[in-house]
Each structure stands twice: as C-alpha cells, then as structure tokens.
C-alpha cells in the first residue's frame, strides 16, 4: 500500500511540473515552478541538474522518481 502511495505521489508531483503533459520535464517547466514554490530560480536549476542524472536536459518520470525516493529514504537509489 505504501509503495502505491509513493508511486501515486510521484506521478502527481511529476504532473504538477509537466503541466503540458509531455511525459518529461524540461528546464522551462522547472523555472515555471518559481511562481508557486518558495525556491529561487537558481535553486530550481540546481534541483533540475541534480535530478537529471544523465544530463540530457529532460527529466523523465524515472529520474524524477529516483530523486523522490532519494529524498524519502535519505539516499540515492539507482
């Protein structure tokens, strides 16, 4: 049940970022969050770079979920 909750939250947060429903998050999507999250543009850039583990400029659900797991469990899960 807990696993499903985490999966659900991951999807929910991913969609909150990917408002155009592209299936990935780009830097522009991340910068847009600046209007409603208490994070600076620089911090959001940092979040994007940290989550974009392969550095291709696109954040997939997999990368996003890996970052969320790292946050939840306090370590990076590959």
């Amino acid at each position: 049940v807990e696993k499903n909750t985490i999966l659900g939250k991951t999807h929910e947060f991913f969609q909150m970022c990917d408002i155009e429903n592209k299936g990935f998050i780009n830097r522009r999507d991340m910068q847009r969050l600046n209007s409603w999250l208490p994070l600076s543009a620089e911090e959001l850039e940092n979040v994007f770079d940290t989550l974009d583990s392969d550095g291709n400029g696109f954040l997939t659900l997999e990368e996003f979920s890996s970052g969320f797991s790292a946050f939840l469990f306090g370590r990076r899960i590959s």
Binding site: F13, M16, L39, L44, N46, A70, L72
Partner: peptide, 29 residues
C-alpha cells in the same frame, strides 16, 4: 572535499523542493 559539499548542498535543495511540493499538495483543498 568540494564535491562532497556540493553533493550535500544538492541534497538539501532537493529536500527543500520535495518538501515544498508536499506542503503545496497538503496545503490545498
């Protein structure tokens, strides 16, 4: 080690980001 420091800072920013998302979610009706 500067790399370790940068890593720790990133973890902090990440935690901040997800905490904000969580609070936005629970804060909205």
């Amino acid at each position: 080690d500067p790399n370790m420091k940068a890593g720790a800072a990133n973890e902090g920013v990440l935690a901040n980001f997800f905490n904000s998302l969580l609070s936005k979610k629970t804060g909205s009706p």
